[in-house]
Amino acid sequence: MSIEPVVLFFLLGVIAGVARSDLKIPPAIYEFLSIFLLLAIGLKGGVKLAEYPLASLLVTSLVVVGVGALIPLAAFPVLRYVGGLSRADSASIAAHYGSVSVVTFSVAVALLEQMGLNYEGHMIVYLVLLEFPALMIGVILARRGEAGMSRCGRLFHEVFFGKSILLLIGGLVIGYIAGADGITPLDKFFFDLFKGLLAFFLLEMGLVAASRIADLRHHGVFLISFAVLTPIMSGFAGILLGLLIGLSVGGAFLLGVLYASASYIAAPTAMRIAVPEANPALSIGASLGATFPFNIFVGIPLYWWFAEFVYRHAS
C-alpha cells in the first residue's frame, strides 16, 4: 500500500509553519473548506446508506456508540492518575479522544477509494453519533461532585446545532434522498473535487499543527505517549468490533479510524465552553500536534494492515 498523497500536503503545511513562512490560508477559505468536507462526507455516506438495509443500523449504532463511550472513560483515569493531570484537564483530553476527527476519517475514505474498496454508508451515521457522547462524558467527568452544570445548555446547542453535526446530517439526508442517480449533477463538485480540497484543508491543518508543537514540548513524554498509544489501542478495538458486528473489511477499517481519531474542531470549542478551567493547549496540543499527524502517517496504514490481517485470519 502506497502513502496517500494528500497527507503530504499536511507535511508541507507543517514545514511552512515551522519555517515561519508567510503562507496563510485566509479564514474564509478555511471555513469554506470545512463546510465542503462535512457536506461531501455526509453526501457520500447518504448515497451509500441507500444501498444497504437500514434495519440493522439501530442495533449496531447502539453497540458502536456504547463501546465508543468506553474510550473517554478508560482514558480519564490514565490521564488523572498516571499522568497526574488536573480533573478538568483529564476530562477535557478524554473528551477529545472519545470524539472523532472528520478529517482523519476523510483521509481514510480517500485511501479506500484509491484502492477501489467499498464501505458501508453506516459509517457516516457512526461518525455523527460518535461525535458527541464523549463530549457529554467529558463534562460529567470534569464536573463530578460539583453543581456547576449551568453551561451545559450552551454546550448542547453548540454540539447539536454546531456546523459539524448540522452539515454531516444534512448531507447524509440529502444524499440518502437523492440516491446514486439523483446525486449525479452534484458529483463533479462534491466527489471529484473532494481530494483536491482535502489537500488544501490538510495544508492548513499542517500550519495549525506546527503552531501547536511547542505546547506539546512543555508537557513531555507522558502526553505524547498517551497521544500515540491511545489511538492504536482504540483503533484495533474498533476493527475487532467491526468484524464482530459484520462490517466489511473497509467498514471495520473505518470504524477503527473513527475510534482512533481525536477531535480538534468540535471538542475544543465544546470543552472551552463547558470546562473553561481546562488548559486548551494540552488537549489541542495532544490531539492536533501528535495524534492527528500520527494517525495520518502511521496509524491509518497500521489500521489497514491490522484490518486485512484480522479479516484474512477470520475467514
Binding site: 478555511y30 492548513e204 495549525v208 503552531s211
Partner: peptide, 12 residues
C-alpha cells in the same frame, strides 16, 4: 493567554 493567531475558530 499566549498568541491568538486566529487560524481557526478555537484559536481566534
Amino acid at each position: 493567554h499566549g498568541m491568538r493567531a486566529g487560524r481557526w475558530s478555537v484559536g481566534g
